[in-house]
Design a protein around this nucleic acid. Structure first.
Length: 305
RNA sequence: GGCCGGGUAGCUCAGUCGGCAGAGCACGCGCCUGAAAAGCGCGGGGUCACCGGAUCGACGCCGGUCCCGGCCA
């Protein structure tokens, strides 16, 4: 049985994972993180250190160039391959991360319909020329009422995606699966645990983390990164990177403003993570109102049965 | 001391001719299948600095007071 540790950002998952790995001895870590996949995005993604990665094997970290457009489907393939590899060596995987969709992509039977750049471009042109998504939403309601019911009429990105799939594959978007609201038996056998901290504590930890990233040289990292590579759309929107880029471009002249904005966005990200994971009844929550490392005994008890 | 701005939601600020007080961010509650650290929806919040006046009716007009910023002395 594999293990998974989820929870919002800055909740202490990574540190706990290292302790668990040492205690159990037969696990390798699989990072479930949409931004740690990018090489060069180190400080701002709180990537595990080289020392940690030497002590315990980490998978799905540094597997993409920052100029690449990484995606959930790629992650699904790569993570499942990593898990198979770990199994082949007689070890167990310890999945650790906060990207909710990626967790489900790995452990649940999600089938991602293919992409079609031309269909998408055509749809985006239609949005631009008609000055909104109303017409496309009406079209989606016609051809795929189930998908339309799951998508809000103003959510351009998801409306475009659903129609991209319909037009390019001829199959309704909703025919590819019941959605991420279905929590069955995982296709990758795994025990799910989540770290739960009170909001005020998490907010404090986020502030501390942002300050620590600044002290660790986040601004220099971003400066060198943008000087040496054309960051992809996905990589450049990483929390901390987007804000520091705006600072370096002069859009946010005051660095403290950029850092405050980073903390704001991290908090709202943590809120969405909380919403995402809270729905999953398969997660056993371990909570503390102090230092997250205090939940280690509870975690080990949970996982040694 | 004089002159000119300004004081409206936790923060930054809109508010037309006097007619039920607004936005963005924050905060709260949610949604979610190839960008997910993305994208989207809903909600709670107000002594409109204070006192007085004219008016059917004032955030807005008139008088005064306090506070902040700038310029001049």
């Amino acid at each position: 049985m594999h293990l998974a540790l989820v929870g919002p950002t800055a909740s202490g998952k990574s540190g706990l994972a290292m302790s668990v790995a040492h205690a159990l001895g037969d696990v390798e870590i699989v990072s479930i993180d949409s931004m740690q996949v990018y090489r060069g995005l180190d400080i701002g993604t709180a990537k595990p250190s080289t020392r940690e990665r030497a002590a315990v094997p980490h998978h799905l970290v540094d597997v993409a160039e920052p100029s690449d457009e990484w995606s959930v489907a790629q992650f699904q393939r790569a993570a499942r391959a990593a898990i198979a590899d770990i199994e082949s060596r007689g070890k167990r995987a310890l999945l650790v991360g906060g990207t909710g969709l990626y967790v489900q992509a790995v452990i649940d039977p999600l089938t991602f319909p293919p992409r079609d750049a031309a269909a998408r471009a055509a749809l985006e042109r239609e949005v631009a020329s008609s000055g909104g998504v109303e017409r496309l939403y009406a079209e989606l309601t016609q051809v795929d009422p189930d998908a339309a019911a799951r998508i809000e009429p103003s959510n351009e990105r998801r409306i475009v995606r659903a129609l991209e799939v319909f037009r390019s594959t001829g199959r309704r978007f909703s025919s590819y699966g019941p959605g991420v609201q279905t929590f069955g038996t995982p296709v990758v056998p795994v025990h799910l645990a989540g770290v739960w901290l009170p909001r005020a504590l998490l907010a404090r930890r986020i502030d501390e983390r942002v300050a620590a990233m600044r002290d660790a040289g986040l601004v220099d990292e971003v400066r060198e990164l943008v000087a040496s590579t054309a960051l992809s759309r996905t990589a450049r929107q990483a929390i901390g990177y987007q804000e520091i880029i705006a600072h370096l471009d002069g859009e946010t002249p005051d660095l403290d403003d950029a850092l405050a904005r980073t903390a704001d966005r991290t908090r709202s990200f943590a809120r969405r993570q909380r919403m995402w994971f809270r729905r999953d009844p398969r997660i056993t929550w371990v909570a503390t109102h102090e230092n997250p490392c205090l939940v280690l005994p509870a975690l080990l008890a949970l996982w040694s049965r």
